[in-house]
Every structure is written in C-alpha cells, then in structure tokens.
Design a protein around this nucleic acid. Structure first.
Lengths: 245, 245
DNA sequence: TCCAAATCAAGAGCAGTGCTCTCGTTCTTG
DNA sequence: CAAGAACGAGAGCACTGCTCTTGATTTGGA
C-alpha cells in the first residue's frame, strides 16, 4: 500500500507465517507423515501450486518447522534455566531436563520431528545446527559453572577415547577436562533417550508414574557428569536423596 | 500339488514371506515412509489389490516388519550375550549394548522403524510386546545374576518413586530391589538414546570416533546400575579403566 | 463324486498426494 | 512508463492406499 518496497515483501512474510502456522497445526494434529501441502493450501484458501512460491518443496517446509521446533524447545529450556539461575548446578541441570521433557510431552509431534527418525531420505541441512544446539549448550554452561566451582566427572578414559574427547572439548568447551565433556555428551544423548522412550510408548505397561522416575533418572545423570548439590553437610540432601555412592 | 490341504496353505505362506522379504528390501533401501504396497506388488509381479489378501493394510505389513525387526535385534543381542556367558556382569552388559548398536548401524531403517518416531497415527499392537522385550529382558537377567553374586545399585529413591519402582519390580524382576529396577529401566532407555543420537545424526559434527565413546558410555551405564568388574583386586581392570569412583 | 463355498488374481476406479508447467494478472523497479 | 519479476490459478502427470467387482481355481462337505 504505502511503502513502495513493502507491500509485496510484507505480504510474503505474512503468507509465509500463515503457511507455517497452519502446517504446525496439522503437524500437531496428525503428525509429520500426514502433513500435506495441498491440505495446508486448501485451509488457507489458496491453490497448492501457489504454495510452492513460498516453500520450494515439502521438505523445505518441514525444515522450517524443524528449526522452529528446536528454537521453541531451546526457548523453553532457557526460560526454565533462567528461573533457577541462582541455584546449584544440580538443580539447574534438573530444571533444564524437566523443561525439555515438559516441552516434549506438550508437543509430541514436534518432538518426533526433531528427535525421532528423520523423514524419508531427509538429511537435516546445516541451517538447523545452531537451533539444535541450544539445549546442549545450556547443559555445557551448567557443567562449566560447576567446574569453576567445585568439580566435574573425572572418570578416566581409554587412550583412544581421550584423544576423541579432547577433540570434542576443543569444539565445545575448551576449559573443561575431556573426561567431563565425554560424560556430558553421553548424558545429553541419554536425556533424550529417556524422553523418547516415554513419548514413543516404550514405557507403556512398565512405568506408570513417570515424572518422579524421570527426575530421579536425570538426577543420576547429573551425578554421572559430576554435578553435586550445593551443601555437602553430612547426610545427603532431602527431597531427592542421591548424595553419593 | 499332492497334499490336499497343503497346496493353498503352503502357497499362502510362501507368498506372505515373499511380500515381507521384498518389503524389507524396500524398507532398507528407502525407509519406512517410502515403503509402497504397490511397488512391492509390482516387484513381485502381482497386482496391488492381490496383496491385500495377505496384509489387510499397509500398517499391518509394517507391524509384521516391526515384529521381525524386534526379533532380529533380540536375536543379535542374545547371540552376543551367549558368546560371553562366562564373563562378569559388566562384560556381558557391554556385549549386549555393543551388539544392539551394531545391529542398529547395520539396519538403520529397521531401527528407526522400532525405536524412532511411530509412523502416522500408528500405535503398536500388543502383538509386538514380547518381541520388543527381548533386549530388555536380557539386561534384566544380567542384573539379576549380578545381584545374586555381589550387589546392584542401591541409590535411595524418593517415597513416591519407591512405590512406583516396587510396582515395576513386581512385573519385571520381583527378586531385585526397587532401586536397582529403577536404575535398570533408566539405563535401558538411555542406551537407546545413545544409539539413536548416533544413528539420527545428532553426533554428526561432534563425535567422530563413536565406537570407543559408546563403549565408555555404556560402561558407565553399567556402573550406574551397580554392575562391577569380576576382579576387585586393587587397581581397576585395564582396557576400559572404570573401576569405581 | 459332485457341487456349493471359500479363496484367489486381476482390473477398474476413487480420492488423495507432491510437483511441474503454463497462462494471465499484479506489483516493483530502472 | 515500460520491462521484468513475482504471484495466483488451473490443468496435468505420476504416484499412493484402498475398495469393489468379475471370473477362475481350490477346498471341503453331502
């Protein structure tokens, strides 16, 4: 209307957002496999071929949704972490893990999109890397803080793993000992193993009351990376009693 | 031909097997999402509608493939376990985990089928439960043997989790303390978190040399369930030095 | 032994999909 | 103001899962 360059550009942004919004709705309702370009276009009152002006293929739409999902998860985790910023590393670790689980339970299909099996012949483009790293970086930060304070995992590594862990540490947290980085990366994967098993029904006739089970498991995970509770005053802290072996 | 009742019955078994075989080939080549009934029928020289006499829907074919995949994985794990039957619980634990990883790397699409995100609106029927439990039961057996021998995880549980863990133990291993059962189930989920992350590309620019990383991680998992190496003679066993804290 | 009933392969057809191409129209920009 | 880019609409292609009907073959009971 008014601004010369703006009319089409703004319309494009709006239509793109509307497509993603409707696609996300269908994703939440039916899952990624039943996400249909034609159905999205139909719901938006446009013809399917018009949609290809905004997303060159169905996979490109999915990629956009994947990035959004990673960002949404990262945001939830970061918000939860910010709320316990003053607490000890173990509480912060648990807060992040619990937030990730909560997010996954609230948006199961989006979780499946990013941490489930990759779609058809789909390989995630590098564009997704920064968004995908947010939760991991949060955990790295917690361990780094803990290392500055008291200590972290020091379980000795085999020689070949030590070399590999040093490479990983160089990319991820040069100030951390490789033993801690190896433990951290493993715990990161294991966290999503716990969430995925619950979400995909593997716990179905096995674990009923899943929240306390999850809390205990990620608390043990934190213990494995060497995170300790703030007060080492004799008996282990009450609530989740997992002081030491 | 000869036996009256056998001609059709045997043909049916053969055709059913041929369908599954071709479907498995397509699954391995392209993934579950691109598995097409029509393509399977075409490859077998029959028309697509004929295939519905053997599998009433695509999901039923997938269910059959899922059960086969669970059984194949369970068989691999059991074979690997049998080869180290005389070893200590920790070695046996690692052998089972390594076999599971190896199987997953060899048949990534079948792994994605059973441990990735469930397909469309698909919920696994109860038929899959026994096949799906095989690896888990193997791990339960190892921990049970270890408990008879020395000891298992005894990390105290919160009251509500204790009740839940007792329920789990009743269904799974009544002779094991609930603390060990909770740790075991968590480790079971975490194992497939490690495998899934490697398989689905989450380790891509992060972990390069994955075999030693995986071995270390599952060794730590075993440690978390309380499994120990056979010889507690002073220094930790060489090879993977992770004796105790 | 014979005949009804069950079983089977084949074909046509329906509704849906991702994607391509073409054709006017509209907006943008030199 | 006119060239050109961007856009929406429509037709069409090749594919999918699945249903229904038709006619042939096998089976099992009278």
């Amino acid at each position: 209307m008014s601004t010369a360059r703006g009319a089409r550009a703004r319309a494009r942004i709006e239509v793109t957002a509307a497509i993603k919004e409707e696609a996300r709705r269908q994703l939440a309702a039916e899952g990624a496999a039943k996400l249909s370009l034609r159905a999205v276009a139909r719901e938006l009152g446009m013809v399917s071929s018009a949609l290809y002006r905004y997303f060159p293929s169905r996979d490109d739409l999915l990629t956009a949704l994947i990035i959004d999902a990673y960002d949404s998860l990262g945001e939830s985790a970061e918000a939860a972490h910010a709320q316990v910023a003053g607490a000890g590393p173990r509480e912060r670790w648990i807060a992040v893990c619990v937030a990730a689980r909560r997010w996954a339970l609230a948006q199961p299909h989006e979780y499946a999109l990013i941490y489930g099996s990759p779609v058809p012949g789909y390989t995630a483009p590098d564009t997704t890397i920064p968004a995908a790293s947010r939760v991991g970086l949060l955990l790295v930060g917690i361990v780094r803080d803990a290392y500055r304070g008291k200590g972290v995992a020091r379980t000795p590594l085999s020689p070949e793993l030590k070399a590999e862990a040093q490479r990983m540490a160089a990319d991820l947290a040069p100030d951390l000992p490789p033993e801690a980085v190896a433990a951290l990366v493993a715990a990161w994967a294991q966290l999503f193993g716990l969430i995925g098993f619950e979400l995909f029904g593997q716990f179905n006739r096995l674990v009923e009351d899943r929240e306390p089970f999850f809390r205990h498991a990620v608390d043990q995970l934190a213990h494995g990376v060497g995170l300790v509770y703030p007060e080492p005053t004799g008996t282990p802290a009450k609530g989740n009693g997992t002081g030491g072996p």
